[in-house]
Amino acid sequence: MRLLTHNLLMCNLKTCAGQNFPLALQANEISEENTEFNLVLTQKMLGKLDWKAFHRVADSLGHTLPEELTPEDQNNDELMQRLHHLLFNIVVLSGTLTCQSCGRAYPIDKGIPNMLLEDSEEA
C-alpha cells in the first residue's frame, strides 16, 4: 500500500460514518521503490489529496511536512520531489490500519490492505 492509497481508505463499518478517516498507520515492513520523479503526476495528485490526512500519516512515519501547502509550494522542486517519494515510492508491505473511532484494525499483508469485514460486522 502506497501513501496515496492510504489517503482513500476509511473504516468500512457503517457505524463509524463521519469519523472514519484517516486510519492510523502502523507500518511493520516498508519497501522504498525508486520510480523516477514525476512532477506532472505529483501535481495532479496534490489536487486530489486530503492534505491533513497525508500530513498526519507522513508524520507518523517520521517525515515532517508543512502544515499547509501553498500554491508556491507547487514550484518548490525539492519539496515536490519529497512528496513524490512519499506518495509513490514508499510501499507498506505489512502493518495495520486502525480506525481512530472504533478501534477496528485492518491488516496490511503482502502490500495489500484488507478492508473486508466479518459476516457479523456486515450489517
Binding site: 492509497t5 482513500l8 481508505l9 476509511m10 468500512n12 460514518a17 495489500i112 478492508m115 473486508l116
Partner: peptide
Amino acid sequence: VNGDIFRQKG
C-alpha cells in the same frame, strides 16, 4: 485493495 467496493466511501 482487498475490500467490498461498495464500502469504499473514501
